[in-house]
């Protein structure tokens, strides 16, 4: 700060506090709604102060779910989301780090072609080629399975690039020393590159976990069996009950539970998260 301007400081605080409140307001209301009974949403305006049904609502959702929507209990959906998010995060990191290793530490024919083929995936989000991708997954009999939920989303050029950029900064002397000591390429990878990449892997893991957990369109299309519903797509099925007012209290309990895991991950690992975010975009 250049000069001391108390009024400007106070003004900045006011702006930030207003910003924080605006950002938090929807979540606050969702939480309040999840503590009320179903009758509080019939008329008038929604409640803005906590109600007495906090434990009832969450317990009901976690153990039974909403019977009328045909959705499984929430613990099941959260478990599915967790499996999908972990498979996507671990899978992406595993295949990306291997291919980045090959691209940086080997010279082989068609390397340029492989590089461009991977690069193209950066440009094609799943939403724009949704019909044909769905057909491929259906032909492979992967509908309603964890493999179908995660594998099509695993290919990632961003992670490959991040690892490639990082490997290029690893000193050549390490490679030379390992070769002198007679290490095979895979030994070098396991004993030197992998430990050095630890922070990058962790940062990427945070970003990819959130990406995986928050998937919506893909699980919506390929799961018809409620046993494979994920929590983020399940909210919509609960809110859309035919010819009735949604049961706001339980829908909002689901909203809170659906956002809790990724938000906790971001807040707990803020430093890694910021690193991952800023570096994958470069």
């Amino acid at each position: 700060m250049v000069e001391n301007r108390p009024w400007l400081n106070i003004f900045s605080h006011i702006v930030l506090i207003l910003g924080v409140l605006t950002v938090a307001f929807p979540v606050y209301l969702a939480f309040i709604a999840s503590t009320h009974g179903p009758d509080d949403f019939m008329s008038g305006v929604m409640p803005v102060l906590p109600g007495p049904h906090l434990i009832d609502n969450y317990w009901q959702m976690l153990s039974q779910g909403v019977s009328t929507s045909g959705a499984p209990p929430l613990w099941r959906m959260m478990f599915n989301s967790l499996v999908m998010a972990l498979m996507i995060a671990v899978g992406k990191i595993a295949i990306s780090i291997l291919s980045a290793f090959a691209m940086v530490y080997f010279r082989f024919p068609l390397r340029g072609v492989a590089f461009w083929l991977i690069f193209i995936t950066l440009m094609l989000p799943v939403e724009v080629r949704i019909m044909p991708t769905f057909k491929v997954v259906a032909d492979l009999h992967l509908l309603n399975s964890y493999a179908g939920l995660s594998i099509p989303l695993i290919a990632s050029a961003t992670a490959t690039f991040l690892f490639r950029q990082f490997f290029l900064t690893v000193p050549d002397e390490l490679t030379e020393a390992s070769r002198v000591d007679g290490a095979t390429p895979m030994m070098f990878f396991r004993d030197i590159l992998l430990p050095l990449s630890r922070t990058n892997i962790a940062a990427l893991f945070v970003i990819l976990f959130i990406y995986g957990w928050n998937q919506y369109l893909w699980p919506l299309l390929i799961t018809t069996d409620p046993q494979y519903y994920t929590v983020v797509m399940g909210i919509k099925r609960m809110a859309d009950v035919a010819d009735a007012i949604p049961q706001w209290n339980v829908v909002m309990a689901t909203v809170i539970l659906a956002m809790l895991p990724p938000v906790v991950v971001v807040v707990a690992m803020q430093r890694l998260f910021v690193k991952g975010l800023v570096e994958t975009e470069k």
């Binding site: 979540v27 969702a30 659906a258």
Partner: peptide, 16 residues
């Protein structure tokens, strides 16, 4: 206090 909405799914933000 300002970064956590990044972790909220677009669908969840929409419903809220």
């Amino acid at each position: 206090l300002l970064v956590w909405p990044y972790a909220v799914a677009p669908a969840v933000a929409g419903v809220m």
